[in-house]
Computed example of a mutant assay.
Amino acid sequence: MANLKEQKFPEVQGGGSLILAWQIKNKTVLVVGGGEVAAGRILNLLNADAHVVVVCPSEGLNPEVRHRIANDGVTHVDRVFEPQDLEALPPTGTSPDMVLVAVDDPAASTQIWKLCKQRRIPANIADVPSECDFYFGSVHRDGPLQIMVSTNGKGPRLAASIRRWIGDHLPQGVGNAIERIGELRVKLRQMVPAIEDGPKRMRWMTRVSDAYSWDDMCALTDEDMDNLLKFYQTNKVPELHVLKAMRGGKVVEDLDVFDGSFGFSVVA
């Protein structure tokens, strides 16, 4: 084994955040407040399939929050926050899994933060980084693709600018291509479900992802994906024109692929 002092390892860069994709589907999130910031938080939560409960007097709701309550299944409690909200929320009567505070009252916000800490409920107090268990970054969304840019609470507007730049430079159709790859993975797992086949599945899917362009991936039909799966057992990945030639029920043996007419080759 090489001397540890001779090995190169990444340098530690303190002061960052652990960026995670938090799965809150079907979990209950309490939003205190009903203004513009709360509206953005609520949309993020609904995109993640959370159950959202908004505690705010009706006169404090902005038009977007009113719309979410009326149309998107958001539960509204028409009053100011009370400590018992951390114990039981409608309609389930359970405590929240997460709390987001977006009100123009620093003292009240800090009190809610302290109550959340006592109950070990993760919380975010808008615009107060020191009273946050987590931050909201600026997110680019294209179907299943999500890219978050975070400045660790130091420059939200800069994060938004960087996010827009990234979005403008991504290939067209990248979200659709990822969707197709996801469908192919599901089909492959159904075809080869054994746990011990996991490493081989991952290696083959990596080769498939590297073999086709974004546009090519988007253009794959369900028949193309079924035909592509036929190459899994031999650990091969055909070129796109071979898959197109197999459309209509043809199999590789039916194709005159070795005389150069299709230029058949297999990605190494």
Rank of each mutant, 00 (worst) to 15 (best):
Met1Leu: 08
Ala2Arg: 03
Lys5Val: 15
Glu6Thr: 11
Lys8Val: 12
Phe9Ala: 07
Phe9Arg: 08
Pro10Ile: 05
Gln13Gly: 09
Ser17Asn: 06
Ser17Lys: 01
Leu18Cys: 03
Leu18Val: 04
Ile19Arg: 01
Ile19Glu: 00
Leu20Arg: 00
Ala21Phe: 03
Ile24Leu: 10
Lys27Asn: 09
Val29Ser: 10
Val32His: 09
Gly34Tyr: 00
Gly35Ile: 00
Glu36Arg: 00
Glu36Gln: 06
Ala39Phe: 00
Ile42Gly: 00
Leu43Pro: 00
Leu46Tyr: 07
Ala48Gln: 05
Asp49Gln: 14
Ala50Lys: 04
Ala50Met: 04
Val52Asp: 07
Val54Asp: 02
Val55Glu: 03
Pro57Gln: 04
Pro57Arg: 03
Glu59Pro: 09
Gly60Arg: 01
Asn62Asp: 02
His67Tyr: 12
His67Trp: 07
His67Arg: 11
Arg68Cys: 10
Ile69Gly: 05
Asn71Met: 11
Val74Phe: 09
His76Tyr: 08
Val77Arg: 02
Phe81Trp: 14
Glu82Val: 14
Gln84Ser: 14
Leu89Trp: 04
Thr92Gln: 14
Thr92Ile: 07
Ser95Asp: 07
Pro96Ile: 00
Pro96Gly: 09
Leu100Tyr: 05
Ala102Val: 04
Asp104Thr: 08
Asp104His: 12
Ala107Gln: 08
Ser109Gln: 14
Trp113Val: 07
Leu115Phe: 03
Cys116Tyr: 10
Gln118Leu: 13
Ile121Lys: 04
Pro122Glu: 04
Pro122Ser: 10
Ile125Lys: 00
Ala126Arg: 00
Asp133Leu: 07
Phe134Ile: 11
Tyr135Glu: 06
Tyr135His: 14
Gly137Leu: 10
Val139Gly: 05
Val139Arg: 00
His140Gln: 06
Asp142Gly: 12
Gly143Phe: 09
Ile147Lys: 08
Val149Phe: 02
Ser150Pro: 11
Gly153Cys: 05
Lys154Gln: 12
Pro156Arg: 03
Leu158Gln: 08
Leu158His: 11
Gly167Met: 05
Gly173Leu: 10
Gly175Pro: 11
Gly175Thr: 07
Ala177Asp: 04
Ile178Arg: 01
Glu179Phe: 10
Arg180Gly: 12
Ile181Gly: 15
Leu184Asp: 02
Val186Cys: 09
Lys187Ser: 13
Lys187Ile: 05
Val192Asp: 01
Ala194Cys: 13
Glu196Lys: 11
Asp197Lys: 11
Asp197Ala: 14
Met205Trp: 01
Thr206Leu: 07
Val208Lys: 02
Ser209Arg: 11
Ala211Phe: 13
Tyr212Leu: 06
Asp215Val: 02
Ala219Arg: 10
Leu220His: 10
Thr221Ile: 02
Asp222Val: 09
Asp224Lys: 05
Asp226Thr: 12
Thr234Cys: 04
Pro238Arg: 05
His241Arg: 15
Val242Tyr: 07
Ala245Lys: 05
Met246Asn: 12
Met246Gly: 13
Arg247Gly: 15
Arg247Cys: 12
Arg247Val: 04
Gly248Lys: 06
Gly249Asp: 12
Gly249Ser: 08
Val252His: 01
Glu253Ser: 13
Phe258Ser: 06
Phe258Ile: 00
Asp259Phe: 14
Phe262Pro: 02
Gly263Trp: 02
Gly263Ile: 03
Ser265Trp: 05
Val267Gly: 06
Ala268Phe: 07
